[in-house]
Design a protein around this nucleic acid. Structure first.
Lengths: 345, 345
DNA sequence: CTGTTAGCGCTTTCAT
DNA sequence: ATGAAAGCGCTAACAG
C-alpha cells in the first residue's frame, strides 16, 4: 500500500520515475512531447504512488480551475431542479465541476455568493438572477471578466448570452385559452415586475385581454412571492373581492399550487368555481394525476443550452455578438382549466 | 473606476497601502494583530482596487479550500433535491461552497467524480452512495483523508458518520398497515439488495409478513431500477402473474409513480384494484392531490444534519467514535392504500 | 504590531 | 524529448 497517498506531489512521482517534475506535468497534461518509454515509466510511478494532481496548484499556475457555478433562486422548484441537473451533466461531460448556489431569491445572498465565486476563480456562471436588481452583481462579474449566461430571466441594462422562455407568447396562449373557454373576468397572480419573466407574462396577459376586447381591471392583478404561500395569499385576496374572477392565470407552478389550496380552503373548487392555468408543469404531480393546465417549458434544455453557451465563451468559441436563445413552450391542457366544463362568469 | 479589478493581487493592495503583503493578509483574515490605523488604510486600498483574494492561492498555502461536495444518485428525486438544498444552505452559512455531483446511480460516474473531488481538495463530502459497491470509492476517500458522511444509505464494510432513515421499521409500518386493511397477498417492488435502504426495506416487509403469519412468496417480489420506469415494468410483471397481489409496497416515491401508471395502463385502478404504499412523499404532488400513502422522511434533516456532522469532522469537533444517526419517518395515510375502502383479496 | 523568508504544487518559459 | 529557473497569489513561521 506504499506510503500515504494523501500528500504525494509531482516531485515524488518525478523522482520515483527518474525524471523532472516538468516531464510528469507533460504526462499529466497529455502533451505529446514525451517519449513512449518515459511516459510509461511516469504512468507507472503515478499508479504506484496513487498520485492525484492538485487542481488547486494547477489552477493557480495555469489559471484554469475547471469549475463552473450555477446560481438559482430555488433548487426545489422543479423547473430549476432540472436546469441544475442538466447543467451539472453537461459540465461533467466537459470535465468541469459545478458549484451550486441557491439564493432563495434573496439579493443579499446573491451578492455574497457571487463575491465568493469570484474569489474561487470559477471559470463561468450560469445564473437565474433574482431580478433586475441583480444588475450590480452581474456588472461585478463583467468587471472581473467572469463569463456568465442568464437563464430564464434577462436583466435590464445587461447585454449578454441568455436562454429564456417565450413568456409573452406563452402567457398569451394561456389567457387566450381561458377566453376561448368563455371566461371574461380573468385574474392574474404574478411576481414583482422587476423579474423579466413575470413582467413579460403580465404583458402577455394584458395583450390577450386587449385583443379580445376585454377590460384590464387592476383589481384582478395580484402581486405575490413566487411560491405556494404567495399563491395562497394572493388567491385569497382575489376570492374575497366582490366581483371575483372566474379564472386565474398563475405566474408559475408553485404559485398555482398555493392558489389551488386557497380555493379549496374557501370551500370552492378548481376548476368548477375557479379555472386555473399557469407556467411550468410539475412533472411528478402530473404523472400521478393530470391536473395542471400549464405552459410547459423545456427546463432541461435551459440548462444544457445555457451551459453549452457558457463553455463556448470560456473556450473562446463564443460568437462575437451576444447570443440570446428564446425557447418556445407548449400548452398542455389538463383539468385545472375546466376545458370540458365551461364555467363562464 | 481605477484599473482592471481582474488581476489585482495582495501585492498591489500592499503597495497602495504602504505595508507588506503579510499585513494585508492579516487584515483579510481578520487577525487582531493589526493596528486600527493600518487596518483602515489596508481596507481602503482593498476597496479602491476592488481586490478579491484568490481562494486558490489561499487554499494552496493554507490547505483550506472552503469547498465541500454533495454526491447524490439523482438530484431530480424530490428526496435528494431537499437533501442537496439543505446541505448547500448549511454549508453557505458556515462560509463553505458546495460542489454538486449527480451520479445518475452510475458507479463509474461515482468513481470519476470522487477522483475529481480529491483533485479539487474538497474539505469534505456528503454522499448518498450508489450501493455497497461504492466501497472502493469510499476507501479511496479514506486513503486521501477526505472526511465524508453517508446520507440515506450505509455501505457494507465502511465505518463512518452517517445519517439514515429507519428503513426496517418504516417498511414494517407500511406493510402492517396494508395487512390491517385486510390484504394477504402483498407485493414488493424493491431495488437491488446491494443498496442498504432497499435491503432493509425488504427485511421490514418480510418481518411484517412473518409476524402476521403470512407466507413469503418470491413471486411477489420484483427487483427494479429505482425510478418510474423501473416501477412501471415491475408492476407490469406483478399484474400479469396468475395470482396477482391485492396490494403493493414500492421501495420509493418514484417507483410508486411508475407502478401506478402500470396499474392504470392495464385498465385497473389504485387503490380499488391494487392498493399501494411507498417510502418518501412527493410534496408538490400531495399538496395538489393527497394520493400517496407514504412513509415520509425528513429529507431536509438528512441534509442539514449530515452537513453539520461533516463540518464537525472537518473542524476537528467530531466525536471520537463514528456517529450514526437514524431518523424516524412518519406514516401518512392518503388514498393510494384504500384505507377507506378495504379491498382484500 | 509589522516585515522577511520560504514555500504550498504545479506550469510557464526558455534552454539544451 | 527533457530540464532548470521563475513564479502563479497567498500564508506559515519566524524575527524584530
Amino acid at each position: 500500500m506504499s506510503a500515504n497517498s494523501a500528500d504525494v506531489t509531482i516531485r515524488d512521482v518525478a523522482s520515483l520515475a527518474g525524471v523532472s517534475p516538468m516531464t510528469v506535468s507533460r504526462v499529466i497534461n497529455e502533451s505529446d512531447r514525451v517519449s513512449p518509454d518515459t511516459q510509461r515509466r511516469v504512468e507507472k510511478a503515478i499508479a504506484e504512488l496513487g498520485y492525484i494532481p492538485s487542481r488547486l496548484a494547477r489552477g493557480l499556475s495555469a489559471r484554469r480551475t475547471g469549475t463552473l457555478a450555477v446560481i438559482v433562486p430555488d433548487v426545489a422548484n422543479p423547473f430549476f431542479t432540472m436546469v441544475v441537473r442538466a447543467a451539472e451533466d453537461v459540465a461533467r461531460r466537459s470535465a468541469y465541476r459545478v458549484i451550486l448556489c441557491d439564493t432563495r431569491a434573496d439579493l443579499a445572498v446573491e451578492r455574497d455568493v457571487i463575491e465568493e465565486l469570484i474569489a474561487h476563480r470559477v471559470e463561468g456562471i450560469a445564473i437565474a438572477p433574482v431580478s433586475d436588481r441583480s444588475k450590480p452583481h452581474l456588472a461585478r462579474l463583467a468587471r472581473f471578466r467572469v463569463p456568465f449566461v442568464l437563464i430564464d430571466r434577462t436583466v435590464a441594462g445587461i447585454e449578454c448570452d441568455a436562454v429564456v422562455g417565450d413568456s409573452v407568447g406563452g402567457a398569451q396562449q394561456l389567457v387566450e385559452h381561458l377566453i376561448r373557454l368563455g371566461h371574461r373576468r380573468i385574474g392574474l397572480i404574478v411576481e414583482a415586475d422587476e423579474v423579466s419573466s413575470a413582467r413579460e407574462r403580465r404583458q402577455g396577459y394584458e395583450s390577450a385581454l386587449r385583443a379580445a376586447g376585454l377590460p384590464l381591471d387592476p383589481a384582478l392583478v395580484e402581486v405575490a412571492t413566487p411560491d405556494p404561500d404567495g399563491g395562497l395569499e394572493a388567491m385569497g385576496r382575489l376570492l374575497s373581492s366582490e366581483d371575483r374572477p372566474s379564472a386565474v392565470f398563475a405566474v408559475n407552478n408553485l404559485v398555482a399550487l398555493g392558489a389551488i389550496e386557497a380555493v379549496r380552503n374557501t370551500g370552492l373548487d378548481v376548476p368548477d368555481d375557479v379555472a386555473l392555468v399557469c407556467f411550468d408543469d410539475i412533472e411528478f404531480a402530473s404523472r400521478l394525476y393530470p391536473f395542471l393546465t400549464a405552459l410547459e417549458q423545456p427546463a432541461e434544455t435551459f440548462g444544457t443550452l445555457g451551459t453549452r453557451l457558457l463553455l463556448d465563451r470560456i473556450e473562446g468559441r463564443g460568437p462575437a455578438r451576444d447570443h440570446v436563445v428564446v425557447l418556445p413552450g407548449q400548452l398542455t391542457v389538463r383539468r385545472s382549466c375546466g376545458a370540458q366544463a365551461v364555467g363562464a362568469a
